[in-house]
Design a binder for these strands. Structure first.
Length: 424
DNA sequence: GTCAATTCACATGAAAGAGACCACGGTCTAGTG
DNA sequence: CTAGACCGTGGTCTCTTTCATGTGAATTGACGA
């Protein structure tokens, strides 16, 4: 049972492909001791983690100043314009907003000015991804407990208005990944939030919306758009040199001296720049490369580790999605997998549905309708597990042309996982 | 040969249903003084 | 008399189905050269 001891706790489950070949039960104690003694790679790994907030933010001075200028009037007790920030992932939007609001709060506290900042990530599943949940979450952050469900939304609005008004101060609501909220809950919630000040007597609210989706404002209701985007800021992606600089600063804190192979940072930033200047991804890559080097008991993080890290991150992602996917969707993915393994490059919606129906019959599942399967297929496409393209074959109809985009290295494991999960 | 109409096989959108989960208020019941 | 169990009602949320409409190029068939 190689590695079973690592896999007993469901949440900390480590996929089999990560397990060390050289780690047998008898060597366990030695391994742990060796691990502790040989802490030669990381000085402070935390620095490379995505939620780490550095003291100084590099290459974002312009944006910090802009946010500060817009939010500064709160210090005089004035309501500010609503601010809308957009830029691709890993361009430092959240970091800049959190950094600036923290400093603002600091000054406010020193001068005894009543300002409150509430940060909510609207993407968080089952936390703030619907109208009700967002309001409940906001009310909660003002100290009012609201049940997870059961109350009418109107009532939650009332509670929220009351609790906000009772603060008697300027409140800055930061809604991160606001596009996700819009997608799920529609324009109404944003419209209501932008109009909230007319309902309040004692307090004021300023909204800061953050979105990864550059075309988000196009989808907004014009009424919401004009009031939410009173001020707009675009965060450009970092270029390779900037990412290099960021990586260098962070790695100085995170790693011991001379641990990184020369050229590693450059390679890492080149990877990230290729991925549209995503600094978060670059840091993750560096951290995982370090972890791999550590696990291999190496003294240095090598470029080869970087390549492994890239592969590992992708494999982990795919593996996690597949394992946590609902059963029905797993059957659909399995059908696609089977078609792919029949060494077919491309296949179409109809073929997949046919095989899916067959598999359902075999598994004693009630098959979903084609309509639903169509949605699942586009979900799979969005998750990057398949590539789907809508094509028209003229007289022979319009359909998705689908190919699998799971790496060949992880394919056998995915197949096995699906078979185990489905009991095939 | 040309061109408009037709056709196919889904894609996509909207609305609504099913079932899980939860809060709340009213009613019932058993235990206590 | 009271605390706790139980139940019905009304709410949200997610997943799903049903129904309706949209799509785009190959095919078809009428028409004229």
């Amino acid at each position: 049972m190689k590695g079973a001891w690592l896999g007993t706790k469901a949440k900390a489950y480590i996929p089999p492909f990560l397990l060390e070949e050289n780690m047998k039960e008898e060597g366990l104690v030695e391994y742990f001791e060796h691990f502790l003694e040989n802490n030669t790679i990381f000085k402070k790994k935390l620095v490379l983690q995505s939620h780490y907030a550095p003291n100084t933010i590099t290459h974002r001075d312009e944006q910090i100043n802009a946010v500060a200028k817009i939010l500064a009037p709160t210090l005089r007790g004035e309501q500010t314009s609503n601010l809308f920030i957009y830029g691709k992932t890993g361009t430092g939007k959240t970091l800049v907003v959190k950094h600036t609001t923290e400093k603002l709060l600091h000054i406010a506290q020193q001068r005894d000015i009543k300002v409150k900042v509430v940060y909510v990530n609207c993407k968080l599943k089952r936390v703030a991804d619907t109208e009700y949940r967002l309001l409940a979450q906001l009310a909660r952050s003002f100290g009012k407990e609201i049940p997870a469900t059961g109350l009418p939304t109107d009532e939650v609005y009332n509670v929220f208005y009351e609790v906000i008004d009772s603060t008697r101060c300027i409140n800055i609501l930061v809604l991160d990944e606001i596009d996700q909220l819009m997608e799920r809950a529609g324009n109404d919630i944003l419209y209501n939030l932008t109009r909230i000040n007319s309902e309040l007597k004692e307090s004021r609210i300023s909204l800061v919306g953050i979105s990864n989706d550059l075309s988000f404002t196009d989808k907004l209701d014009p009424r919401v758009k004009s009031s939410l985007s009173e001020e707009e800021l675009v965060f450009p992606p970092y270029n390779a040199l900037q990412i290099q600089d960021i990586l260098r600063r962070r790695s100085d804190l995170a790693f011991h001296e001379n641990v990184l192979e020369p050229g590693l940072i450059e390679k890492c930033s080149a990877y990230a720049a290729r991925e549209h200047g995503d600094a978060r991804r670059a840091l993750e890559l560096l951290r995982v490369a370090g972890e791999i080097a550590e696990r291999e008991c190496q003294q240095q993080v090598l470029i080869a580790h970087l390549d492994k890290a890239e592969q590992k991150i992708e494999n982990d992602r795919v593996y996690h999605i597949v394992r946590t996917y609902p059963k029905q969707s797993q059957v659909i993915l399995y059908a696609i997998l089977c078609l792919h393994l029949k060494k077919r490059e491309l296949f179409f919606t109809g073929e997949i549905y046919e095989l899916y129906e067959y598999l359902c019959k075999k598994l004693n599942f009630r098959p979903l309708t084609q309509r639903r399967v169509s949605d699942v297929l586009s979900e799979l496409d969005m998750l990057g597990l398949i590539r789907a393209r809508i094509i028209s074959k003229g007289r022979y109809g319009r359909m998705r042309e689908i190919s699998l985009s799971i790496g060949e290295t992880i394919l056998p494991l995915i197949k096995k996982t699906l078979e185990e999960s489905l009991g095939l």
